[in-house]
Design a binder for these strands. Structure first.
Lengths: 171, 171
DNA sequence: TGTTGTTACTTGAGGGCTCAACCAACTGGG
DNA sequence: CCCAGTTGGTTGAGCCCTCAAGTAACAACA
């Protein structure tokens, strides 16, 4: 422990921003999740799956691609698709060329559920996020989000590489 | 359906911003939650409870006040405190003046767990959120967050917010 | 061919969250 | 005092998520 570098704490302003950001995100999340759950009986992750599937050509996607597009783990998606299949929103199909693979296919019922849910959800997003912001702030939020994504994306690859090195036994 | 007003959809830019913001938040969340879980064996909500308790005078808070300060439901907090008590991080105490009430008291073990977890977590917050942003963007993010909070905070909770601010200084 | 490694996906256990129901204690009006 | 209404907090069921382990199929190569 003695060799560890001194942690860089947050300035007063950073601390204030972090707490407000944290609060804003948790309130937004609770608000949108609750709206979707109450009005359409689905968690937000399922809604995202429906959206991505509905935009895919043929309304079909490989599980892996769907997981990637929704930033979900394979496991999470697998559980989710199991339940959505039970709901009649989605149908699993075997992949003919790669027998390990599975397709997730949006059913008419799934599309209907999405079309039923979408207006209320979009309205909630608008009312809770965009309405209180000026157009300038919307633009700023977009740039901030892009910067965060760009910064966090290579970091994932880096963590994966370290993991690999540790498994091999370091050189 | 015929009488419902037409939904206001999102513009192209709003849609792009919403998707980026959504992705950024989910990546940030996953990153920070994972870091805290791996390095300190606690979910982020428990960390927040420890922080708030550690800053409270006497390191004690009524369950209700703690729930407010952490933007948590009573139920969630009750479950959380139960587990944190089992971990030895917190101790429940009865309230002498109102026998329904309960205090949550931070234990030395809980404080130690927090002090152990804090540097790594702060570093992760800095690295994933503040480092990729310019000082100007940090300021913008603070203003955006405040606007969202103000918009989402129901009027009935305004008194509660003031109450929270007074928890420190009022004694 | 077999063997090793990787990829695609599933499964089960365990933990956290929400919701609704609940109990117990305080409050206020008769 | 009584009794309804409210408040503070807990509990259990059900759901979603994560993690680790497992299965099955592909790929590379001796």
């Amino acid at each position: 422990m003695g060799l560890m570098s001194e942690p860089r704490w947050l300035s007063d302003e950073e601390q204030r921003v972090w707490r407000d950001f944290s609060a804003a995100v948790s309130m937004l999340r609770a608000h949108l999740e609750g709206q979707l759950q109450r009005d359409s009986g689905m968690p937000h992750t399922y809604y995202e799956v429906l959206v991505v599937l509905s935009e895919a050509p043929g309304r079909v996607l490989r599980m892996s691609d769907l997981a990637l597009a929704t930033r979900s783990s394979r496991s999470r998606l697998s559980h989710a698709i199991a339940r959505m299949e039970a709901n009649g929103w989605v149908r699993r199909e075997a992949c003919p060329t790669d027998k390990r693979g599975a397709f997730a296919h949006l059913t008419p019922g799934g599309l209907a559920a999405l079309e039923e849910a979408a207006p209320g959800h979009v309205e909630a997003v608008r009312a809770s996020l965009f309405d209180p912001l000026t157009p300038e702030q919307v633009k700023q939020l977009g740039e901030i989000s892009s910067a965060v994504i760009a910064n966090l994306t290579p970091r994932c690859a880096e963590a994966a590489r370290e993991e690999l090195e540790n498994l091999d036994g370091d050189g």
